[in-house]
Design a protein around this nucleic acid. Structure first.
Lengths: 297, 297
DNA sequence: GTTCTACTGCGTAGATGGTACGCAGATCTA
DNA sequence: TAGATCTGCGTACCATCTACGCAGTAGAAC
């Protein structure tokens, strides 16, 4: 097993309770398109946890991102900022992969002490979420000339893919919450916008965008894995040949055919793989979008 | 950030070299449908690494799985076996999630010492791969009455989904290599088999199965995430409502429409989500499968 | 049977890394 | 100016992976 750089937080924390909602707060440029702080109903702190009405507590740092939650100006001037921390963390991840990302490493990058970071971020996982949202960047948005849902979604997918390619490490961060960051939410909105003119129901639009987003992420991950494996000089080059030696042609006839056709050894065809999948998906959505029936919505 | 249980090995090993191909070997019931040991060309050890002809070195334990590599019967009788270790590890993962899976924990389960495991598995990652392959189990295989590629692939996808649902932790193991285990390979073959009667080229068949498999995995992961988040009493219940309070309707109009339609709050509709995505994909593949043109293959 | 030796389990120890806790000092409010 | 509040961060503590090497075991070779 060479190519490491896997998931992030191994489930520590099973140990002691921990008071959870500690350090957090930072001056953050409020996300564009947010509801201003005043318009937002106060979010109950995570300390309050009645077991009836489910209270949805955002991670404090995420509230910062959205511009909710001002902080008092008491105390010494802050030496760091959420943005600087996230930026430094992204630098580290970019250079050394998720595996090389440790709180200590990020702190060193900033010339600060490890524990300083915990004034801005309550746990490493939170930092990871912020990093991913930042790395994703804003969605492509509408074109001047609207050229239909298919072209729009295609551009959307290509854009998302490009984002992943620019920040491969973000694919190594497991998704554990629905999209919460401003950028993620903006991407969601943008995808839905592409389908706005179609007869799809809201539910169908949502499902379609979710489907597409999963596809893009998956494809990007696969592509990254291939590249990683290849650059390790490991298994991937000649994967087909290796399988061919392992398997028994009689028992895996279909796979054998694929191997014989050489389809498995065409390296670096992840572009066409992506195009193929995207086309299939859009074709599938088209069946709904171009149906003659009357839509429910 | 409550619900941990994230990735597995954080990228240690960046430290010292390590001699990599150490302890491994076990009596393993050879996988069905394998090429017998005799038929298989010897696989060069990972020590040999000429930089020309790319040598594809399998992890030793995987070679065990395939029935290649006999071990000498010298030395004391072994107290453990790969299978027992993998089974114990799966038990632990099943009960406590990937986050609860440590080599020490597995060893304790077996009444052995931590380091004993390293006689059977060269690293934790290797164990994870074996666990995933085992958990996946064999593919559904052909039905007596062949009812077409669409029904076949549908069954295939449903089966894969069921496997993931039986072993949710397997979704938390990041994929870092192409499918190597006997079960994984069998699933691949089975998917291709479903498409055998269609006019798709080998490349297209392969791409389709890959696409589908990515979809299933993604959908299962999403579903698991939702369930995890919900059972933590966390964000998911009322995600739509929360987003509604965060965003500005004017800036995210499409998303706002989706929220207003209530589509975001329909919990536990991952089944229909899966069905929707699967239908879209199969529709997309159908465009190829039922085209009148002459196939290239 | 005796010796050789590959192989076994596993104790020890090093390294890495997340993060609770609490102190000393800074800055704002009253 | 006193107190409240917040800041950076040093000091542990703990979990975890895994390299190393010892002592003992069981076939093989003679």
């Amino acid at each position: 097993m060479a190519g490491r750089e896997a998931g992030s937080a191994d489930g520590r924390g099973a140990g002691r309770p921990g008071r959870a909602g500690r350090g957090a707060g930072a001056e953050v440029v409020p996300a564009p398109g947010r509801a201003s702080a005043a318009e937002v109903a106060p979010v109950p702190g995570s300390a309050i946890r009645s077991n009836e009405a489910p209270t949805f507590a955002l991670p404090p740092a995420v509230e910062m991102l959205w511009g909710v939650r001002e902080r008092s100006s008491r105390g010494p001037r802050r030496g760091l900022s959420l943005e600087r921390i996230v930026a430094a963390a992204i630098d580290v991840a970019q250079a050394e992969g998720i595996g090389g990302l440790s709180m200590g490493r990020v702190a060193a990058e900033l010339g600060a002490a490890t524990m300083s970071l915990y004034r801005y971020v309550s746990a490493k996982d939170e930092l990871l979420m912020l990093m991913v949202d930042t790395a994703m960047g804003p969605p492509p948005g509408p074109r001047l000339s609207d050229d239909g849902w298919r072209a729009g979604l295609s551009r959307w997918a290509q854009g998302a893919r490009a984002s992943y390619q620019r920040h491969p490490w973000s694919l190594r961060v497991p998704i554990t919450t629905p999209p919460l960051g401003p950028n993620m939410v903006a991407w969601m909105d943008d995808g839905l916008r592409c389908l706005a003119g179609t007869p799809l129901s809201e539910q169908e639009k949502l499902s379609s965008v979710l489907l597409l987003s999963g596809f893009v992420r998956n494809e990007a991950t696969l592509s990254l894995d291939l590249r990683t494996a290849a650059s390790d000089g490991h298994i991937m080059p000649g994967y087909g040949a290796m399988l061919g030696r392992l398997i028994n042609p009689a028992t895996f006839p279909s796979l054998q055919r694929a191997i014989d056709s050489g389809s498995l050894d065409d390296d670096d065809d992840m572009d066409s793989e992506f195009d193929f999948g995207l086309a299939r998906l859009l074709d599938g959505i088209a069946v709904l979008a171009e149906r003659p029936d009357v839509p429910p919505g």
